[in-house]
Computed example of a mutant assay.
Amino acid sequence: MQANITFQCNNLKLPIHYNHMLQGFIYKNIFDDDFREFLHEKGFEIDGRNFKLFSFSQLKGEYFYNRKEKTITFKDRVKLTVSSPVDDFNNEFLKSCLFSTNLQLNHQPIVVQEIDIDENKEKLNKVLIQTLSPITVYSTVQLNGRKRTIYYTPEDSLFSKYIKENIIKKAKIIYGEDFKKSDFKIEAVSRNKISENLIYFKKFIVKGWSGLFKIEGNEKLINTALDCGLGAKNSQGFGCIKLLR
């Protein structure tokens, strides 16, 4: 399920790299304390890995960019998409958004104006999607005794391979089924329809890709992608997507 939330604001000023603030806002506004702690500290475990099973978009709205201060200021309204297949997450987060009288982002008040819900229960095996936040795919290797992160581009065959492996694990948590033999492939519509993004998450640079992608494969894996996000670091604001057709 995707919740498209429009907030009223008054010159909401944020640093350019605000992903960690949105993540903190989401965790803070999960209404149930026990579920918040579970999701923040652990999440859903499978094959020795933990998944939070939510993603969120970059903010949309009319804004002013201050190059000198490296800040972005949204004038009077801003839109955030938060996506998850987990009912507890959706219910507890939206409950807080609807009933809290003190919502704040970067210590500035915001007020929910509208919430639009998309259930993401499509029966499709071929779709066109647009990123709402960049997709990041990487692996970590040892080089000369030090850890090094290698990021993959959509032109690299490992980009689709690692995304498929990742989405199969998420789908197994959600559906309780083994999807190892299921088809799933993602590729960019064209090279000029995607762009590379460099985003700081706290003190670390994350490379990702934004734009239009084609996905083919198992319908449950496609719905998992729409609900959970594609690639890595979804709960840090990467890989959130929307269905175009």
Rank of each mutant, 00 (worst) to 15 (best):
H17A: 11
L39R: 08
T149P: 08
I110M: 11
H17N: 15
L39W: 00
K13N: 14
E37R: 10
K181L: 13
F64I: 15
I205Q: 11
F213R: 11
K95V: 03
T131E: 10
S133F: 01
V127H: 08
T131D: 11
V112Y: 05
E69S: 09
C9R: 01
K75V: 09
Y18N: 13
L39S: 10
G208Y: 01
I110L: 12
I72G: 01
G231L: 06
D47C: 06
L124M: 13
K28R: 14
L244M: 15
E165V: 08
A3E: 12
I194H: 02
I205R: 15
S157R: 07
T71R: 09
D178F: 03
F51A: 11
I241P: 08
I72P: 06
G48S: 12
K202W: 04
P134Q: 10
A232N: 14
E155C: 07
Q113T: 02
N120A: 05
T81E: 06
N50Q: 08
R36Y: 00
V127P: 10
G217C: 09
G208F: 03
H17W: 07
E37P: 00
E119C: 10
D116G: 03
C97G: 03
D227M: 12
V112D: 14
P15N: 07
H40V: 00
F238C: 05
D33R: 12
Y200A: 07
K233R: 15
D88I: 02
I135D: 10
Y18V: 06
G145N: 12
F38S: 01
K79W: 06
R67C: 01
L124R: 15
K70Q: 14
G61M: 05
F89G: 10
C97T: 06
D227Y: 05
A171G: 04
K207F: 05
Q104I: 13
N192E: 13
N234M: 08
T224H: 06
K169N: 12
E122Q: 13
K52T: 04
I16E: 14
I72Q: 04
N29L: 07
G237E: 10
E177D: 11
F89H: 05
N90S: 09
Y18H: 15
I163Y: 01
N66Y: 15
E62W: 02
L143D: 14
M21F: 15
K147P: 11
R245F: 02
A225P: 04
S160V: 07
L14P: 09
S55W: 03
D156M: 09
P85C: 06
K68C: 00
T153I: 03
K203Q: 13
F201C: 04
K185C: 09
C97H: 00
K202T: 07
K121M: 07
V137M: 09
G239T: 04
